[in-house]
């Protein structure tokens, strides 16, 4: 197969699997899972931290050793001001202008607030950020985000941490039909088959965390997702057959023995 690279904001990647670094039992389990996933982009966050716990330094050391491109998030932010300020802190700390922009509008389903997300996007892009917005699958919101300058969209498959897969296939397919920019299904995936489905739909990449970190064997699950994402991508490139209502035999009917034979 010819080279099939993912390009996000001018950077190219061979892996289409973006992996989160939270919820693992230890920094070492996180490192092993990232390694098994083949991911070249990892998400991470910023929080108040007590240095005496010691995990923070180990975490950061392992992250650096992965050599992955860092995609800091603004998880937990509920206002434009919070998200913009956290993004600015991330840019300084991680020395990157990439940001996975999250502005949460509701605690029940952690749904992005589309209005605040758009406003924060506009502000951050004016400050030179490369925004990868965690958004809903709303077509008009996505149009506005692209108009604001986003070169990537990251609609949810399902609410964060639910593992429910692609809840609104129609909307996700509509986004694929309407946008040429890279699309990443972000959040809500629970099983490799769901990731494969997103890739078969033509999505360019998948971002997930909980499904790997909360598996009984996270590195093995990371490998399973990597295989599913690769298979889904190849299926998309190969072109899926059209579904149909009536059955159609795959074995030729011409030359069928015993066919309409009647004793005379």
């Amino acid at each position: 197969m010819q080279s099939d690279e993912l390009t996000l904001y001018g950077k190219t990647f061979t892996s289409r699997f973006l992996l989160g670094t939270a919820l693992y039992e230890s920094p070492e389990q996180m490192r092993d899972s990232v390694s098994a996933s083949g991911a070249e982009i990892v998400t991470l966050g910023l929080r108040r931290q007590n240095p005496s716990a010691g995990d923070g330094e180990r975490f950061w050391q392992h992250i650096r050793e992965t050599g992955c491109t860092l995609l800091p998030n603004t998880a937990g932010c509920k206002s434009v001001k919070e998200a913009v300020n956290l993004a600015q802190m991330s840019r300084e700390l991680f020395d990157t202008d990439w940001v996975k922009l999250e502005v949460i509008g509701d605690d029940y389903n952690l749904q992005p607030d589309p209005f605040a997300l758009l406003e924060a996007t506009q502000e951050l892009i004016s400050q030179g950020f490369k925004v990868l917005p965690y958004c809903t699958d709303d077509l008009i919101l996505c149009q506005k985000l692209v108009e604001a300058g986003c070169q990537v969209l990251m609609p949810w498959g399902a609410p964060i941490g639910t593992g429910r897969g692609l809840l609104n296939r129609y909307a996700l397919k509509a986004l694929r039909e309407r946008f040429n920019c890279p699309l990443v299904v972000d959040a809500g995936l629970g099983a490799p088959s769901q990731a494969a489905e997103a890739m078969e739909m033509g999505y360019d990449a998948v971002l997930l965390n909980t499904a790997v970190a909360k598996a009984q064997n996270p590195p093995l699950m990371a490998k399973a997702f990597a295989g599913a994402i690769k298979s889904g991508r190849e299926a998309y490139l190969a072109g899926l057959m059209q579904t149909r209502q009536t059955a159609s035999p795959s074995t030729p009917t011409i030359g069928q023995p015993f066919w309409h034979q009647q004793k005379t």
Partner: peptide, 10 residues
């Protein structure tokens, strides 16, 4: 004053 450091994130 908020002082923040890298942590795992999704």
């Amino acid at each position: 004053i908020d002082i923040v450091a890298p942590v795992g994130g999704g």
